[in-house]
Amino acid sequence: MRNTTEIIEQYLKNVLLNSPDQVVEIGRNELAEKFQCVPSQINYVIQTRFTLEKGYLVESKRGGGGFIRIQRIQLPSHDKIMDYLMKNLSDSVDQDTAEGLIEQLEESKLITEREAKMLQAAVHRDNIGLRLPLRDEVRAKILKAMLIALLSKR
């Protein structure tokens, strides 16, 4: 059975998917009421599941007329993806950033589900037996090399 966090995440992704401009504006309290949870759980979902690395831009306004606006950001066209990755993927990549990028590439259909799982396994902290910050540097090199190999053949 799925937990409340996953249910809220899926609900918001479905709303975004059905939005013509891939933007959703929600009231934190109204959403908390809908899912019978506290507003801080809505904050948690948005802060952990709708990050820039995962392809989302979040804007928040607090107060009486407060809202949260979530916008899905599209990756550049396939022709520009290699240049985009090389410019934006730094020499050190943490676990969350790597997973977010892989998820975004899969959702954009630039890599398959199988390729995404292979990438995730290759860059997972448990499989890179090094201490920080070296682990994040090695992760970045592995991720870049694998993405170049995967995306240059398409």
Rank of each mutant, 00 (worst) to 15 (best):
S40W: 12
T112V: 13
A122E: 07
R154A: 10
T51A: 01
T112A: 03
F67C: 06
G129T: 10
L110S: 05
A32T: 10
I8A: 01
I102T: 14
A121C: 03
N29F: 09
L130F: 05
R131P: 06
N18E: 09
R72Y: 01
I68P: 07
L150A: 12
K117A: 10
L132I: 12
R28L: 05
E137A: 09
G64H: 05
E59A: 03
P39M: 15
A145K: 15
M118N: 15
E33Q: 13
N29T: 12
R114A: 14
E25I: 15
M146A: 14
R28P: 00
S60G: 14
Q22H: 13
E115W: 08
K61P: 00
L12G: 02
G66K: 03
Q47R: 15
D94I: 09
D94A: 08
E25L: 07
V93A: 10
K13T: 03
I70R: 02
S19C: 03
Q74M: 02
L17C: 02
R135P: 00
K144C: 03
A121W: 07
V24A: 13
L110M: 12
A122V: 05
Y56E: 03
A32M: 09
E113K: 15
E107C: 10
S60P: 14
A122H: 13
R131C: 02
E137C: 05
S60W: 00
M82E: 06
K141G: 10
E30V: 02
K87F: 12
F35S: 03
R2F: 08
G63Y: 15
G66E: 01
H78P: 12
L12Y: 08
N14V: 06
L150P: 15
S77L: 03
M146I: 08
S108K: 03
L17E: 15
I26R: 00
D96P: 01
H124Q: 09
E115H: 10
N29M: 06
V138N: 03
K141I: 09
N3F: 10
K34D: 01
P39R: 15
Q10K: 15
T4K: 07
A32K: 12
M86T: 05
R114Y: 14
V138P: 00
Q120W: 08
A98S: 15
V23N: 00
H124K: 15
P133W: 07
R114C: 10
E59C: 00
K61Y: 11
Y84L: 08
K13P: 01
D91F: 02
S152D: 09
Q104I: 03
V15G: 04
G55A: 07
I46Q: 12
V93M: 10
F67T: 07
V93T: 11
R69H: 02
K141M: 11
G27I: 03
K144T: 08
E25D: 09
H78C: 08
L16N: 01
R69Y: 01
D94N: 14
N29D: 13
R28K: 14
F67V: 06
E9I: 01
L16I: 00
L132P: 04
L89S: 07
D21A: 04
T4Y: 07
G27N: 11
R49V: 02
A122W: 07
A116W: 03
